[in-house]
C-alpha cells in the first residue's frame, strides 16, 4: 500500500506534515533533514524542488528556492540524494515543485523515478486538474504515485467534490487566498471556511496549510482537519540554525507544544 494511504488509515488526528526546500540552506542536507524530521515525530514530509519562478510562494520560500538553485540543486541531483533514502526512513515522502522542471525531465520518467526511489506522492501547484486528468492520471496510477491537489477559499463546492473524486491520498486545504508564508493566525472567516470543508465529509482526509507557524495555529487547524502542513516557518527555522538536529528538534517540539 502507498505509505500516504497507510498513514491516514492508521492515524486520523494531529497529522503534522513539514515542507522544506531541497538544497537550502546547504546543498547536501536533504537526507539529513528527512531523517531528523522522521526522528522528531513528524508524520509526512514534503520535499520542495526549487524553481526560478515560484509564483505561488511568498518571500521565504522564494528566497530558499533561489538559494538552493544557487547552491546547485537540480532534479537529477535531488534524485541522486534520495536514491537510497528508503534504506534509512519509512516516513511517507512527497515531492513538491512547479510543472516546468518536471515537464523538462519528462513527466513519465519523473514519476517512474519517484516510484523506483520510494517517493509516495507529488504536488504540482501549477498543474491544473484538467490537464492532469487528460494526460497524466494514468501514469500516476500505473506507478502508484499520488497526485495531491489544493483547494482554496474560493474553490466552489462543486469543484471541491471534483477534486475529492480525482484524489486518493489527501486534500491540501489552503487556509487563505494568499501566497505561502504571508498570513499568520486565523480569522473568523477562515475558521468558517475550514468548517465548510470539514462538513463536506470528503472521502479523502484533509490537511490545512499556508499560514501555520506555531502551536496555536497548528492546534486550531487540527480541530478542523486531520492535520496541518508547515512550510515557510520551518524553512526559516532551518536557515537560522546551522545545526540540523537542534533546529529540527526545537522547531517540532514547539509546534507540538511539548
Amino acid at each position: 500500500m502507498n505509505r500516504i494511504n497507510a498513514l491516514f488509515q492508521k492515524k486520523k488526528k494531529d497529522i503534522l506534515s513539514i515542507y522544506f526546500t531541497a538544497g537550502h540552506p546547504k546543498l547536501n542536507q536533504t537526507a539529513v533533514i528527512i531523517k531528523e524530521l522522521e526522528a522528531s515525530g513528524v508524520d509526512l514530509i514534503e520535499v520542495g524542488m526549487p524553481f526560478s519562478d515560484p509564483v505561488a510562494d511568498g518571500l521565504v520560500i522564494q528566497q530558499s528556492s533561489a538559494k538552493a538553485l544557487e547552491n546547485g540543486m537540480t532534479v537529477n541531483l535531488l534524485f541522486e540524494q534520495l536514491e537510497s533514502i528508503r534504506k534509512e526512513v519509512s516516513i511517507p515522502l512527497i515531492l513538491m515543485g512547479y510543472y516546468n522542471p518536471i515537464m523538462q525531465y519528462g513527466v513519465e520518467r519523473f514519476i517512474e523515478k519517484c516510484s523506483n526511489i520510494g517517493i509516495d506522492g507529488v504536488i504540482i501547484p501549477d498543474l491544473p486538474l484538467f490537464e492532469y486528468k487528460l494526460h497524466y492520471k494514468e501514469i500516476f496510477d500505473k506507478h502508484n504515485i499520488k497526485c495531491i491537489f489544493l483547494v482554496g477559499p474560493d474553490t466552489t463546492d462543486e469543484r471541491v467534490r471534483e477534486i475529492d473524486n480525482s484524489s486518493d491520498s489527501f486534500i491540501y486545504v489552503v487556509s487563505s487566498s494568499a501566497t505561502t508564508g504571508i498570513k499568520t493566525g486565523f480569522s473568523d472567516s477562515q475558521i468558517s471556511y475550514f468548517a465548510r470543508i470539514a462538513a463536506f465529509k470528503l472521502k479523502n482526509p484533509i490537511l490545512i496549510g499556508f499560514g501555520i507557524s506555531d502551536n496555536s495555529t497548528y492546534s486550531k487547524a487540527c480541530e478542523y482537519a486531520n492535520g496541518a502542513i508547515i512550510g515557510s516557518a520551518f524553512v526559516k527555522a532551518v536557515s537560522a540554525d546551522p545545526n540540523v538536529h537542534t533546529s529540527v528538534t526545537k522547531f517540532i517540539s514547539a509546534i507540538k507544544g511539548k
Binding site: 519562478d53 538553485l69 532534479v75 512547479y98 510543472y99 516546468n100 523538462q104 525531465y105
Partner: peptide
C-alpha cells in the same frame, strides 16, 4: 527556447536543461 510553461502558459521559452527560466 524549448517548449515549457512560463507565467501559466505553455509556450516556447528560454530555459536551462533543468527547466529553470
Amino acid at each position: 527556447g524549448k517548449v515549457g510553461v512560463i507565467h501559466s502558459s505553455k509556450t516556447l521559452l528560454m530555459q536551462t536543461d533543468d527547466g529553470q527560466i
